[in-house]
């Protein structure tokens, strides 16, 4: 039960951060990517703020042996730069540049009433699901 409650609170705070930072607005994201046009560098500040807090916060949290509600921390350990990582990141960048949505802001947009998210979100789920068929378990 506590896992559910704190999962909900983390999601709320994350979404609040997306709204406060302006990143819930795809127009702002597209202007960040439009370096040679109507450039809006705000996203760099969002990343900077998040990275500083996570850098310090993870260091403190990972001094513990276990998280509060689970038996172990799950931290990715892979170090290899493979073709799938590069192909995936490249494709994601292209789709991000076309629609202005990455997955987080696409979720916060669900109740914000745009027509575009009704097309984008189900397609995102289909794409994610398709990637599993293409990607063998490792």
């Amino acid at each position: 039960m506590m896992k559910i409650v704190f999962g909900l609170l983390s999601g709320l705070l994350f979404g609040f951060g997306l709204v406060v930072s302006g990143m819930s607005n795809p127009a702002k994201v597209l202007n960040f990517l439009d370096v040679f046009g109507t450039f809006d560098p705000s996203l760099i500040f969002v990343m900077g703020g998040a990275i500083i807090v996570v850098f310090i916060g993870y260091k403190l949290v990972l001094k513990r042996n276990t998280p509060i509600f689970n038996d172990a921390f799950q931290i990715p350990t892979r170090k290899d730069i493979d073709k799938r990582l590069l192909l995936g990141a490249g494709l994601f960048g292209i789709g991000w540049g076309i629609g202005g949505f990455c997955p987080g802001p696409a979720v916060t947009a669900l109740l914000m009433g745009s027509e575009g998210i009704l097309y984008f979100f189900p397609s995102l789920l289909i794409g994610l699901w398709a990637s599993r068929v293409l990607k063998p378990k490792n």
Binding site: L87, I98, G100
Partner: peptide, 16 residues
């Protein structure tokens, strides 16, 4: 928006 969604979904899935 459909093509953007499909490409983002496929990309973030493959790119982990």
């Amino acid at each position: 928006m459909i093509s953007a969604g499909l490409i983002v979904g496929l990309g973030v899935g493959l790119g982990s």
